[in-house]
């Protein structure tokens, strides 16, 4: 099939499986890190705002492959031998945490100020104001850009190839090295990435149109 053996194609799909696993790790980790960042970015305390903004700017100003290397070598200087999945997962967590935090900060701020004021008039505590009034509205705004960013996460897991993490890009590279059929191999890899990413892109667009209509 396509000039590749069944084993070679299976190898590429095995890589695709790890790409999905790393993407999920990146998204879950990014959510765990991104929520506090979003809260700190839109908090009233200046120190929290400055600290979180510095963290975000640092991560957004450094290429993801370099973050991967820093995490990878950073873990190993402690004398720990960890699999590439851990290093790649941590790097993806830092990366998507910074971006998701920034996206969600925008969503929280997009909720009209009058909503906060109305909640205050109803004598809700700050926590209640946030959880019962602002969060449900921010969540609705947050869905389209979050789904859109998930596409970025899937695509950017490919950078884990620099620390030799076995994912779709890595497996395609290996198969290309042994068969030297670059067009076939990389078109197949691109098609798999596309099959994962495109439905999410369409979904993000659809959600966005829905949000604009309402």
């Amino acid at each position: 099939m396509l000039g590749l053996t069944i084993q070679q194609i299976a190898y590429i799909f095995q890589g695709a499986g790890w790409t999905i696993i790393l993407s999920l790790l990146g998204f879950v980790g990014g959510t765990v890190l991104g929520l506090p960042i979003a809260l700190a970015r839109s908090s009233n305390s200046k120190a929290l705002r400055v600290a979180s903004s510095l963290l975000v700017q640092f991560i957004q100003g450094v290429p993801l492959p370099v973050i991967m290397f820093v995490v990878y070598f950073g873990i190993s200087i402690g004398g720990f031998e960890v699999p590439a999945l851990v290093a790649a997962g941590l790097a993806m967590t830092l990366y998507s945490g910074a971006y998701l935090g920034e996206i969600w900060k925008g969503c929280i701020q997009a909720v009209p100020k009058t909503q906060w004021e109305a909640a205050e008039c109803l004598a809700l505590t700050p926590a209640q104001r946030f959880v019962y009034v602002v969060l449900p509205q921010a969540l609705r705004i947050a869905i389209p850009p979050t789904v859109g960013f998930m596409v970025q996460i899937v695509k950017n897991t490919s950078y884990a190839v620099v620390i030799n993490f076995f994912d779709l890009t890595y497996s395609a590279k290996v198969i290309n090295n042994s068969t030297f059929m670059p067009f076939t191999v990389f078109t197949l890899a691109a098609a798999i990435y596309f099959a994962i990413c495109f439905p999410m892109s369409v979904l993000a667009q659809r959600y966005e149109r829905k949000l604009h209509r309402s």
Partner: peptide
């Protein structure tokens, strides 16, 4: 282009 990673495009 927008739904595939840059590395794959470069390798291709």
């Amino acid at each position: 282009i927008r739904n595939t990673p840059l590395i794959i495009q470069v390798f291709w």
